[in-house]
Amino acid sequence: MTGAALTGFATSISLILAIGAQNALVLRQGLVRSHVLTVVLFCAFSDALLISAGVMGFDAITGFWPWLPRVMAMGGAVFLLFYGALRFRAAWRGGESLAGPRAQGSLWPVIGTAAALTWLNPHVYLDTMGLIGAVSAGFEGRAKLAFGLGAVAASFVFFFALGYGARLLAPAMRSPPAWRVLDSVIGVTMWAIAAALILG
């Protein structure tokens, strides 16, 4: 049970670690301390919903198409290899930095932006319902539930840490050398997951 939960946590946190558009929004809201709790909860609960759908519904889908997990794993591996290569290229070229935050006014435009960055992003479906769902297929019963809870917990931990730790991260995120290290770590992580999917 503990091993399954830790696997779910590690899988989920590694997939959402990359600084994408959604994470940049959470980071910026944290920097200006504007609607942080609402944005963090929205992103975390959205992830929890998608992760649950992937973990609980993946078996039913694969009952109709038993070849689907392998195809999705291979497709996910290709995407992760490509994304990892982009991160390695960014680390090699340098010049990455976080643009200065801009304060947001009312709550609803911020929520609308978070919703668009979450639900209109095709990668979120690959990550949550595809990759996490595929990994969860290796567990059964209570172990599968533990895996799902671990994956959901990772999402909450990540978004709360990002939103409320933003002010501590701000100097590092504005430093090009720090971004080179971050991009390199993300690249290694993405390629490691891709290798596991291919070899699995």
Rank of each mutant, 00 (worst) to 15 (best):
D59V: 07
A60Y: 03
I61D: 00
T62C: 11
W65V: 08
P66Q: 05
W67P: 01
W67K: 09
L68A: 05
G76R: 01
F79P: 00
L80E: 07
Y83S: 13
G84F: 06
A91T: 08
A91Y: 11
G94V: 05
E96K: 11
E96H: 11
L98W: 12
A99F: 12
G100Q: 15
P101E: 08
P101Y: 12
R102M: 11
Q104I: 09
Q104Y: 06
G105T: 04
S106I: 00
S106C: 02
W108D: 00
P109R: 02
P109W: 05
P109G: 06
V110A: 13
V110S: 11
I111V: 09
G112F: 06
A116N: 07
W119H: 04
L120G: 10
N121W: 02
P122F: 06
H123L: 08
Y125D: 02
Y125E: 01
L126Q: 02
T128E: 03
T128N: 12
T128C: 13
M129T: 06
M129I: 13
G130W: 01
G130C: 01
A134K: 08
V135W: 06
A137F: 05
E140Y: 03
E140C: 01
G141R: 06
K144G: 09
A146G: 10
F147A: 10
F147T: 09
L149Q: 12
A151Y: 11
V152H: 03
A153N: 07
A154M: 12
S155A: 15
F160D: 07
F160L: 15
L162S: 08
Y164V: 11
G165Q: 12
